[in-house]
């Protein structure tokens, strides 16, 4: 502490100063908090239909709440940025996934068909069928489609980043992806975005 600060502090009424400081500090902090726009960063790494939901639901909702949203799509997550979405779901090796009929009488809908992995793996087109049933369930329950949620994210100005390395690795062409992509970047570019955000999720 310099000599000037010392002399100022000595001439002050310490308790009055502390009281003033506490009040001022509280007010300033409240002001800052009120002006702060919350932000969300998501790292989306999965490309199946079921795993496409969490990032887009959270991002679109955060957008609706007025948050700043950034999503980094890497590895299989890049599938979520394709112009034509053909996302599939696999019940194979996924014991938590209920296998229920989306149609028919209630007693039929209530049955959870526990199909052994060995059987699922052996039937050609099993994943296509499961995907079709899931799509029907989503529709009948009034759950948004992935396309719808993705559009909501874009409308809310969520920044969608694609991982350049994955594009090279998997031999994708940039033309296959939606034009709204904010940038083709790498981990070094996204981490500083994530660092500044209030909420950061790896999905």
């Amino acid at each position: 502490m310099g000599a000037i600060e010392k002399s100022i502090l000595e001439s002050l009424d310490q308790s009055a100063f502390n009281q003033w400081f506490d009040q001022r500090f509280e007010a300033k902090m409240a002001e800052r908090e009120a002006a702060h726009v919350p932000s969300l960063s998501i790292i989306a790494t999965k490309g199946t239909m079921d795993w496409a939901y969490p990032p887009f639901i959270l991002a679109s909702t955060a957008g609706a709440l007025g948050w700043d949203v950034s999503i980094f799509f890497t590895f299989y997550g890049l599938e979520l940025l394709k112009k034509d979405l053909h996302l599939e779901i696999s019940p194979l090796g996924n014991p938590s996934m209920p296998m229920k009929m989306p149609f028919g009488p209630q007693w039929l809908k209530d049955i959870n068909w526990k199909v052994p992995n060995l059987v699922m793996a052996g039937i050609p087109g099993f994943e296509k069928m499961a995907t079709g049933l899931m799509e029907q369930t989503v529709k009948s329950k009034g759950v948004a489609s992935i396309e719808e949620l993705r559009s909501a994210c874009i409308e809310a100005d969520a920044k969608l980043y694609a991982c350049q390395m994955t594009v090279d690795l998997f031999g994708h062409s940039q033309d296959d992806f939606i034009p709204e992509i904010e940038g083709w970047i790498g981990a070094a570019s996204f981490l500083p975005v994530a660092q500044k955000s209030d909420v950061c999720l790896f999905i």
């Binding site: 639901i57 909702t61 948004a144």
Partner: peptide, 9 residues
């Protein structure tokens, strides 16, 4: 008939 998060959106 809509489900989360559609009503909010």
């Amino acid at each position: 008939g809509m489900n989360c998060p559609l009503p909010i959106l």
